[in-house]
């Protein structure tokens, strides 16, 4: 209940663009130039919306009915084709990743992976985790991330960011014995 109330509160302070109230924008425009403009507007809106609500997964399925793609006030929703088209635009510009081949959902990177990596490394340094091991779970929901930007970070995004740090020689993802969680060891920068 409380979570729902919070969600509603958040919903309120997100400012929707004016076009969100116009039914034509919920239909893919046939004229090429208009359509390009339309897709650009939607793309920015998706990124802004996800950043605001800290949403990582955007579903293209009709059954899921992602709130942004449905405006009950004007009784309009995007078709699956339109959603896939928009998410594909994001994937092409590197701001999203398809979660599966069937393109049922996409992982929206409203912060680029290197940015996440930088954020994680700064957090680890701040907590004194250099040369220490932190579990992936701890980085998502442990007491050290409470109230930080990392809280609730999507696992896939987190793993990709750690892989980015791995390339920089700042961290390593590893698995322990059978049944153990995944861990990340942070290194002091050479």
């Amino acid at each position: 209940m409380e979570a729902q109330a919070q969600q509603a509160e958040k919903e309120d302070d997100f400012i929707y663009p004016i076009f969100y109230q116009y039914p034509p924008y919920f239909t893919l425009q046939p004229v090429k130039e208009t359509q390009q403009k339309q897709r650009l507007l939607w793309k920015d809106l998706i990124l802004r919306y996800c950043r605001h609500h800290r949403v990582f997964v955007v579903s293209a399925e009709d059954a899921e009915d992602f709130p942004l793609f449905h405006n009950p006030a004007i009784n309009r929703r995007l078709t699956r084709e339109f959603k896939v088209l928009l998410l594909d635009d994001l994937v092409r510009q590197g701001s999203a990743l398809w979660s599966d081949r069937a393109q049922r959902a996409a992982l929206v990177l409203w912060r680029a992976i290197p940015e996440w990596a930088e954020l994680i490394y700064r957090w680890a340094r701040g907590c004194g985790f250099e040369d220490s091991v932190v579990t992936v779970d701890e980085m998502q929901s442990g007491m050290y991330v409470t109230g930080t930007e990392l809280e609730g970070l999507h696992r896939e995004v987190l793993v990709r960011a750690v892989r980015n740090l791995e390339q920089q020689g700042k961290a390593k993802l590893f698995k322990g014995a059978l049944g153990d969680d995944e861990g990340v060891k942070f290194f002091t920068q050479a």
């Binding site: 091991v133 579990t135 322990g176 049944g179 153990d180 969680d181 861990g183």
Partner: peptide
């Protein structure tokens, strides 16, 4: 490191 990970798990 592995020991720490196991313990934390």
């Amino acid at each position: 490191d592995r020991a720490v990970l196991t313990l934390k798990s």
